[in-house]
Write a protein that binds this DNA or RNA. Structure first.
Lengths: 249, 249
DNA sequence: CCAAGGAGTGCACTGAGTGCCATGCGTACC
DNA sequence: GGTACGCATGGCACTCAGTGCACTCCTTGG
């Protein structure tokens, strides 16, 4: 991606410093994002036209669509890069990793991107929360993340019976847990500890689907543990009991 | 309006009461759906304009938007009713039902709707598979189902710690399992047994989240189960053992 | 026979998104 | 130095989805 200086894929949100790369950041793209958000916040998304944005940014209307294929895209300026990062992360594995844990780590990547720009993320959250069109667009963005996770799991589960089913379900569960934590963090205006929130949420998914959550690392517990459960207890309760008995989670 | 030669495709089951305006069955709506699908299939979705559709259906352009708020909506003409059915189903419970099983049953409702019109469903599947705009729209439709399930589970899990998290994750898993089964059925051109496919997929979710899967019906298992595990065994192995001991999965 | 209301329609308008071409600017090559 | 090229940008006109409004029927009810 970072092949050519000033090449065709310059992306970053407006606040991110990219002076390190030495590639001049594209001022126009950032100017458009800044102008768009200023107007979206002060008069609403649907009340803002493309002409308003380009007028404020001081550029031609045609240039907007050169950088963003649609009006919605300007609200999610960095997801294309993030999706590429996530795909690269999943492809970079050796194949020895525990698959569920791996996709959970991939999800943490996305949360980190949000957490890098808390104010921007919170503003966008408020926007998407109340504009149906943006919510729909966000779904298609999230769907691409989910597909990336599911495709990875499908490869890892190729030998399993019902591998694709398990891959789809686990990917959906991971995304849902991530989104639950993300929204909780966004509602706190970025005040909560994002990573702790998402760790907790993903631990639930890992416990349900058999990933080993948070390896104990160091302490030497008793060798054997006995758990007694009523047979009709729901599995999640049994697992919860196991976890606490094992001193995990 | 039956006089129009274009409206010859009895694609829709429109005998049921209309969810939007309880005015019985509107022939115009069906004519529009029939005309739209005829054109979509023979020349593609994006190559078909609203004017083409209303011309073929022999009605005024303005009338299209009276029945369908957008061009995409004509592709999913019955989902509004189905969503209402599902919401009603979830609200109709006594509160004694096992929650995970209940949302699985709700999902089966949706599959049934698809299975009622196999040819229509398969045609729509082919369409949505290759038109990005329709895929995005379908996501927003599916999202509403998922929200309905999640809201139900949130109510049922109100007393639990992490109730909303569990609700969101389980709802997402149920929808993913349902969609996996649905797509598998659609790819078979509606030849497979739809209910068996979805039962199998949902059983996986129930086994993971503690719904009692496929109740043994008759046999009375032991009341209590004891599990012994080495303390440093990975959790997923413990869970696997628990599951097999409990006779789940 | 008339009043009211709803269903259908025509018309004009907004705004997103696209294709095409002109313009300006820097660089490479002669 | 000048010309040719590539590239980013801007301007213009066009298509098409979607909306607001006003008008015509047609039905229903008094």
């Amino acid at each position: 991606m970072r092949t050519l200086p000033g090449a065709t894929f310059p992306l970053m949100s407006s606040e991110k410093a990219d002076a390190g790369t030495g590639t001049g950041k594209p001022p126009m793209r950032d100017a458009l994002v800044a102008a768009a958000f200023q107007l979206f916040l002060e008069r609403g998304y649907e009340q803002t036209t493309i002409d308003d944005i380009v007028a404020l940014a001081g550029v031609g209307r045609r240039s907007f669509f050169r950088y963003f294929p649609s009006k919605e895209d300007v609200v999610f300026p960095d997801h294309e890069r993030c999706l590429a990062d996530m795909t690269a992360f999943l492809a970079a594995g050796t194949g020895d990793e525990e698959p569920v844990r791996r996709v959970c780590d991939a999800a943490r990547l996305v949360l980190r991107m949000y957490a890098e720009n808390p104010t921007f993320s919170v503003q966008r959250y408020r926007l998407t929360k109340q504009v149906p069109g943006l919510r729909a667009y966000e779904l298609s963005v999230v769907w691409r993340y989910e597909r990336a996770l599911a495709e990875y799991l499908r490869r890892r589960f190729a030998a399993r019976r019902d591998g694709t089913l398990q891959a789809d379900v686990i990917a959906a569960a991971v995304v849902a847990a991530h989104n639950n934590a993300l929204r909780s963090w966004l509602r706190s205006d970025g005040q909560d500890e994002a990573s702790a929130t998402v760790d907790h949420a993903l631990a639930y998914v890992q416990s349900a689907f058999g990933g080993t959550p948070v390896p104990p690392a160091g302490e030497q517990p008793e060798d054997v543990v006995v758990v007694v459960s009523r047979r009709d207890a729901p599995l999640w309760r049994v697992v919860q009991e196991i976890e606490s008995t094992l001193g995990r989670g």
